[in-house]
Simulated assay, not measured.
Amino acid sequence: MLGFAVDNAVTDDGLQPARLTVDLLRPVALEPVQVQTSVRRSGRRLHLLDATMVQHGVEVGRASALYLRRGDQPPGDRWTTPVTMPPLPPDPPDLDDEVKTLVWTYGKDGKTPSRGLGAWAYDGPKHMWVRDLIPLVDGVTLTPFTRAAMAGDMASSLTHFGADGLPFINADYTLALSRLRRSEYLGLAALTHHSDDGVATGTAVLVDTDGPIGTATATALANPGFAPSRSIG
């Protein structure tokens, strides 16, 4: 919702949403919220915004977003970590009308899609493909950036899941994008997980069907007794 708010506050199509950082201050109930945005700086080449989310008079989340001016791409190639995603599976024919987001997860063999988080219950590479099926706000079409912001929030579960399940709960996440998605599906590939004394950080690559478009990083705390459902949809 914070990503949706900042994206609707920027009307210059020449600006690329390059970074979104969301701080998850308190749990949010499935009840009405108020979201406000403010401009921190509006320059020729960058636009910086803040957003806050309030529920029942209490601030429950906040975000900072950076938009950068698109321009000519410098020549030459630059090295990056190679990322190989599993192929997209076909949409299930028996998809329930109540499913809001279609999520495919991949675990040990890297090829077999699953509709649950159990595929990630091992110590090894993890991937996912995700497609949002309904608007975040009734009557408002999801923008490419809002879709990316929603997918970025999944980086914590992807990178912090292990053989013992998901013992960490995220306190924030940061999405960094070099471009917007060109396909309905967005994918994430886990890159790193580092943790010590109950504090964790994880990074995932964000891709569309044409290739990588950015990264998502989440910091998290060990949360004894935290046992989220392994089913999706």
Rank of each mutant, 00 (worst) to 15 (best):
M1W: 05
M1H: 09
N8V: 00
N8G: 14
V10C: 11
G14S: 09
G14D: 11
P17F: 08
A18E: 08
R19W: 04
L20F: 04
T21I: 08
D23V: 01
P27Q: 12
L30I: 08
L30E: 13
V33W: 00
V33C: 10
Q36F: 12
V39E: 13
S42M: 10
G43I: 09
G43E: 06
L48R: 11
D50R: 04
A51F: 02
A51L: 04
V54F: 00
Q55F: 06
H56K: 13
G57C: 12
V58K: 07
V60Q: 09
S64C: 13
L66Q: 05
Y67T: 07
R69L: 15
G71Y: 09
Q73T: 14
P74C: 07
P74T: 11
D77E: 13
W79A: 10
W79I: 01
T81D: 07
V83E: 01
M85G: 09
M85K: 03
P86I: 10
P87A: 13
P89H: 10
P89D: 04
D91A: 10
P92V: 05
P93H: 03
D96Q: 11
D97R: 12
V99E: 05
K100Q: 15
K100C: 14
T101P: 01
L102V: 12
V103W: 04
V103E: 07
Y106W: 08
D109R: 03
T112L: 06
P113G: 06
R115F: 13
G116K: 09
G116A: 07
L117V: 07
D123V: 01
D123S: 05
D123P: 01
P125T: 00
W129P: 05
R131E: 12
D132S: 15
D132N: 15
D132I: 15
V140H: 07
V140A: 02
T141K: 14
T143D: 09
T143I: 09
T146D: 09
A151K: 00
A151E: 00
G152C: 06
A155L: 02
A155F: 00
S156Q: 01
F161V: 01
F161A: 12
G162C: 14
A163T: 14
A163V: 15
D164A: 14
G165I: 11
L166V: 10
P167K: 03
F168A: 03
I169D: 03
I169S: 14
A171N: 08
D172E: 12
D172G: 02
T174I: 03
L175I: 02
A176V: 08
S178G: 11
S178L: 04
S178D: 08
L180Y: 03
S183N: 03
S183V: 06
Y185R: 11
G187E: 07
A189K: 00
A189V: 07
L191A: 05
L191G: 03
T192I: 06
T192R: 08
H193W: 02
H194Q: 14
G202T: 02
G202K: 00
A204K: 00
A204G: 04
V205M: 15
V205K: 10
L206P: 02
D208W: 06
D208C: 09
D210G: 06
A218Q: 02
A218F: 00
A220G: 06
N223C: 13
P224L: 09
A227F: 00
P228Y: 05
S229E: 15
S231I: 08
S231V: 10
